[in-house]
């Protein structure tokens, strides 16, 4: 087993100990209750509403979980001084950080998949509609979750848990506004403003790429080329964040 996989497995084990399964249980109960309450009020569009709320809720909860669990990820290791015991072994700092990233992504992705399976089961069994259409959107959300996790690891490599959570949430928020920022920059009438907003646009994550919920809730599958494009962008972007995080973590003085 490589050190990265070992650290990732340990991170997942630690997260499971935090009783994150309760989130999935609460989500499942809320989903079933919502489908029973909202469907009769929706005038025939109950399946669409359950799909929309299910996909939105699972994505939101998994994102929040990645931010809250991840913000204390490195801080706890430093506080408990367990990081020194790990660093004493033949493990590079970058491997430690990548293992933490892998474990956190696997945990939040696992939770997302569990919640998504509940949505698919409800759509398939409760409404007799093909649930497979949703897979493209779920896959894109998994990649988006990878970017969010990479942001959390990046910020936690140099700042406090509180600020990590704040910066990560702000990055997610800004990532959804990236397209609007570019648009407003072009409307401003100033060349300097346009250049500045264009630069910021390319630095920010383009999270709208990973949102196909509007497509699948109308029964349209996500085209494979869109998934491929978004996956390529997502892997490159999160790769960039991890390279930067490893560089900072490598130089950080551990006290």
């Amino acid at each position: 087993m490589t050190p990265i996989v070992a650290i990732a497995r340990n991170t997942v084990r630690e997260a499971v100990r935090e009783r994150i399964a309760l989130v999935a249980v609460a989500f499942g109960a809320a989903l079933v209750a919502a489908s029973q309450v909202l469907s009769p009020l929706a005038l025939g569009v109950g399946p669409k509403i359950v799909t929309d709320f299910g996909l939105a809720g699972s994505s939101l909860l998994a994102t929040l979980l990645a931010i809250t669990l991840g913000s204390t990820l490195l801080h706890k290791e430093l506080e408990r001084r367990t990081v020194y015991a790990i660093m004493a072994k033949p493990i590079r700092r970058a491997e430690f950080l990548l293992g933490k990233f892998g474990g956190l992504w696997a945990t939040s992705a696992g939770l997302l998949l569990l919640m998504s399976l509940m949505v698919m089961a409800l759509v398939g069994l409760g409404y007799r509609e093909a649930p497979w259409v949703l897979t493209g959107s779920i896959l894109l959300t998994l990649i988006e979750l990878g970017i969010v996790t990479a942001f959390v690891v990046f910020y936690s490599s140099f700042t406090t848990p509180g600020l990590t959570a704040f910066f990560a949430a702000a990055s997610v928020l800004a990532g959804h506004f990236a397209d609007d920022l570019l648009y407003f920059g072009k409307q401003g009438g100033s060349r300097a403003l346009e250049i500045a907003t264009t630069v910021v646009y390319w630095v920010l994550p383009h999270l709208t790429l990973f949102n196909a919920r509007g497509l699948v809730s109308h029964g349209e599958p996500v085209p494979p080329e869109r998934i491929l494009f978004a996956a390529s962008y997502g892997i490159l972007y999160l790769g960039a964040l991890l390279v930067a995080a490893c560089a900072i973590w490598d130089r950080r003085e551990l006290r």
Binding site: A42, V45, K48, I49, D52, F53, A56, G57, S59, L60, L173, H176, F177, L207, T208, N211, R213, G214, S217
Partner: peptide, 9 residues
Amino acid sequence: LGYETAAAD
């Protein structure tokens, strides 16, 4: 913020 279909519902 990316949840516009849920907001539409």
